[in-house]
C-alpha cells in the first residue's frame, strides 16, 4: 500500500472513529456505569436516525438539528425504559440478568421489524448542504459529512465528560457505578440517579443516531452490525470512561478504514467483532480499564 493511500485511510479512520465515539458514549454510561445490559442501544440509535429522516420529510429540518430536538423525547424514553427495567428485572434478583438480556434483545429485534414494516428494507438517507461535498486540502479530500459527524461527536464527548465530572447528577452517576449502597447511605436515591443517567445516555443516542444518517444511508438491519462495534469499543475502553471510549472508537475507526482500503476489504465487518472477542478473551478489563 503506498503512503498517500495509507494517510488517506488514517484520516478517514479518525473521522469515522470520532463518529463511533459518539455512538458508543451512551452505551459507556448505560452499560459501563449503570450496569444495564443494553443490547438495544444501536437499535435506539437507528430509531433516532429514522426520526431525523421523518423530520426532514415533514418539516425539511437539518438532521443534526432534528437530533437535538429528538434528544428530549429520547430522554423521556430512556427514563421510561429504565424505570420499567428496574421494576421488572433489577428488583427481582437471581436470574434477572438472563431475562434482562433477553428483554433488550427482544426490544432490539422488535424495533428492527417495526422499522421494516414502516419504511421497508430499502435504504433511506437525508439531504443537507454538507452531504455529498468535500473539503479539498491539497492532496486530500475530506468529506464534509464526516467532518460534521465527528465534530458533533467531539462536542457530545466534551459535554458528556463535563457533565460527569462537574455536575451533581453526573458525579452521582459515577458514584452509583462505584457503590450504590454507599450512595443511598448519603441520602441520594440510586434508582433515581440511574434513571436520570439512563435518560441522558438515551438522549445522546438520539443525536448520535442522527449522525448515523449523516454518515450514510440507513436500513433497518444496520443496528445488528453496530452492536459489535459499540460493545467492542465500550469493552475495549474499560467500562465507563469517556476518554477511553473516544480513544477506543478512534482505534476501531482507523483499523476499519485501513482495512477497507486494503485487499482484504471484504473481511471488514468481522474486524469489530474479532477485536471484541480478542479483548474479551485476553484482557476483559479493557485497555484503559479501572
Amino acid at each position: 500500500m503506498d503512503l498517500e493511500l495509507l494517510i488517506d485511510a488514517l484520516v478517514a479512520g479518525l473521522l469515522l472513529g470520532g463518529f463511533y465515539g459518539a455512538l458508543s458514549l451512551g452505551l459507556a454510561i448505560a452499560f459501563g456505569l449503570l450496569d444495564v445490559p443494553h443490547i438495544a442501544h444501536p437499535a435506539f440509535a437507528l430509531l433516532g436516525a429514522y426520526g431525523a429522516v421523518l423530520m426532514q420529510g415533514w418539516f425539511g429540518l437539518d438532521p443534526v438539528l432534528s437530533g437535538l430536538i429528538l434528544a428530549l423525547p429520547f430522554y423521556a424514553l430512556g427514563v421510561a425504559v429504565y424505570s420499567f427495567y428496574h421494576t421488572t428485572f433489577e428488583r427481582r434478583g437471581t436470574d434477572a440478568g438472563l431475562r434482562g438480556l433477553a428483554f433488550f434483545f427482544g426490544v432490539a429485534f422488535v424495533a428492527e421489524v417495526i422499522l421494516i414494516l414502516l419504511f421497508g428494507i430499502d435504504q433511506r438517507g437525508v439531504r443537507a448542504p454538507y452531504i455529498g461535498r468535500a473539503l479539498v486540502l491539497g492532496e486530500f479530500r475530506l468529506p464534509w459529512r464526516m467532518l460534521v459527524a465527528s465534530g458533533v461527536a467531539l462536542a457530545i464527548a466534551g459535554a458528556m465528560a463535563l457533565w460527569l465530572s462537574r455536575t451533581y447528577v453526573g458525579r452521582a452517576v459515577q458514584a452509583v457505578a462505584q457503590d450504590a449502597t454507599a450512595l443511598s447511605l448519603l441520602g441520594a436515591d440510586p434508582v433515581r440517579v440511574k434513571r436520570i443517567g439512563f435518560g441522558i445516555a438515551t438522549a445522546s443516542v438520539a443525536l448520535s443516531g442522527a449522525l448515523l444518517v449523516v454518515v450514510g444511508p440507513v436500513e433497518p438491519g444496520l443496528a445488528r452490525i453496530y452492536i459489535g462495534k459499540v460493545f467492542a469499543i465500550v469493552v475495549l475502553a474499560g467500562l465507563g470512561s469517556v476518554g477511553g471510549t473516544v480513544l477506543a472508537a478512534l482505534l476501531l475507526g482507523v483499523i476499519e478504514s485501513v482495512m477497507l482500503s486494503s485487499p482484504v476489504a471484504s473481511w471488514t465487518p468481522a474486524v469489530a467483532f474479532g477485536l471484541l472477542l480478542a479483548v474479551l478473551g485476553l484482557r476483559p478489563q479493557g485497555l484503559f480499564g479501572r
Partner: peptide
C-alpha cells in the same frame, strides 16, 4: 452474563463473514 451473550453474537457475524 452479558459478555458471554455478546461473544456469541460476535461469533455469528465473524462466521457469516467467513
Amino acid at each position: 452474563g452479558i459478555y458471554f451473550a455478546i461473544a456469541t453474537l460476535a461469533i455469528t457475524i465473524i462466521l457469516e463473514t467467513v
